[in-house]
Design a protein around this nucleic acid. Structure first.
Lengths: 260, 260
DNA sequence: CGCTAATTTGATTTTCGTCAATGAACGTGG
DNA sequence: CCACGTTCATTGACGAAAATCAAATTAGCG
């Protein structure tokens, strides 16, 4: 029983390409992998699970003995505040390992929510431990990738802490576009954005009202167009310049990794 | 030869305890280490360097083939913005490894600045690679610690994105206090804070003017006292409650680590 | 077709930023 | 030891960005 209703209306996101070997693909992008390493990575992807758009995978504070590899679709991690506010911390795309918030302690530090319909592989934490032992080079690579993700988080912090609404929104849109393009191929400059104004605001530290206003301001300037949930960045270069968006190098350095 | 000028006026921070084995101590806190593991960690701490308060260790964008272990003192990592603004991303204390911003690429993604006089060990990146290979368990532990740090960064993002000035300042003060207490022992509730209003503002996304106002508001409420660079949190419990500060568990989970 | 959730809109308030001036603390060099 | 310059903290008046509040409209979904 497929989770996503079949046939007819093909969604904009190629989310049904349940890519076995998502981790392998992602890590292989940084480094040529040996057969043994590829096998080890595929070995992690055995417990497949499906989630519908909007559904919660794990809840903040919940005990959790496993993490997830994204096989298709995308998700976000968030935390709740005492005043019932919410901060969306980051988004996860195909090949990402949702280790950060569930590996440090016996419980999850953030809620993981499916943005689109998606497929995940459940990985027991012990399996990750074994990977570090059997394939130290992959362990080190995971460490490097994690460091890169931490830089991405820092970029978000910088955006939220030090820039105005237009810059924050513009930056976020460009980031999401970049990520989706990696998965779905360069889809022109329009993509489906199944996020509410509230979601966007929770990601960049604004109220939904103000996000709406800001989006319309961007529309007014002819920088973006919207139609339903589909968003089009009319002039990517112009928006990039306007908000000072810097795309980080996608490859991580691997020269320091140990021999396999 | 102590790096900090000798004699007389003993600084408030016990920064001259150049603790060889800082990494060993920090990781040993989470997990009983074998002799071999201890040796390997000490092996990393051979190139000792000293920096005066305020000096820059590495500059954002600079090519860098090494990272640092903090042996004594504290530092912060920051990035500059196009408009000449600055975001302080995180602080580093004794035992911390400044890997995040210099391991992912061939250059440093953030500027590392000494807040107090401090002693660092320079670690070549290759040495870290070797550590992952020779001691996979330590590699995995580093991964876990890095994940915990990422959660800390997320907490900061949440603070900046979703709370007001008083909460942000209060939270930051409590965090710094917690960290310093780990190093210097429970110093009552007062500590030296060698940060300018500008620094504080750059850390939590406020202007120095508003930081000043907010600090005085906290003083007015009798929650803190200030005298020069020394700050005292009069009623830790009250402040903790007021800003909803949640101290994260200091131990990371180690049950998933591979055998040594 | 009707219900709910999400978006749009406008009026108003608040928080925080900006600008500018003053003064204290500190270090340096004459 | 004092004059000087620099940096940082303080203060107040003002302005702007974003939050809040409250409808009204639209879109999505069963």
């Amino acid at each position: 029983m497929p989770p996503v209703t079949s046939s007819a209306s093909r969604p904009l996101l190629a989310r049904d390409s349940t890519a076995r070997g998502a981790l392998e693909h992602k890590l292989g992008y940084h480094l040529p992998l040996t057969y043994a390493e590829r096998d080890a990575l595929r070995w992690l992807e055995r417990r497949e699970k499906h989630y519908r758009a909007g559904s919660v995978v794990v809840e903040e504070g919940q005990a959790s003995d496993c993490l997830h590899v994204v096989a298709s679709g995308w998700l976000h991690g968030s935390v709740r505040l005492p005043d019932n506010g919410r901060q969306i911390l980051r988004f996860y795309f195909v090949g990402d390992l949702t280790a950060t918030f569930s590996i440090a302690w016996g419980f999850t530090a953030a809620t993981l929510t499916a943005v689109s319909d998606c497929t995940l592989y459940e990985v027991p934490r012990e399996a990750l431990g074994r990977l570090f032992r059997e394939h130290p080079r992959l362990g080190a690579l995971l460490f490097a990738v994690s460091a890169a993700e931490q830089v991405a988080l820092s970029d978000r912090l910088t955006s939220v802490g030090r820039t105005d609404a237009i810059t924050r929104i513009g930056t976020l849109l460009l980031q999401i576009r970049t990520q989706l393009a990696i998965v779905d191929g360069p889809s022109g400059s329009s993509f489906e954005l199944p996020l509410t104004l509230q979601d966007l605001g929770d990601a960049i530290g604004l109220t939904k009202t103000h996000v709406g206003r800001t989006l319309r301001a961007l529309e007014g300037d002819g920088l973006i167009e919207r139609e339903g949930k589909v968003i089009r960045i009319v002039d990517v270069a112009a928006l990039t310049t306007k908000v000072g968006y810097k795309d980080r190098e996608s490859h991580v350095a691997t020269d320091w990794l140990p021999d396999r």
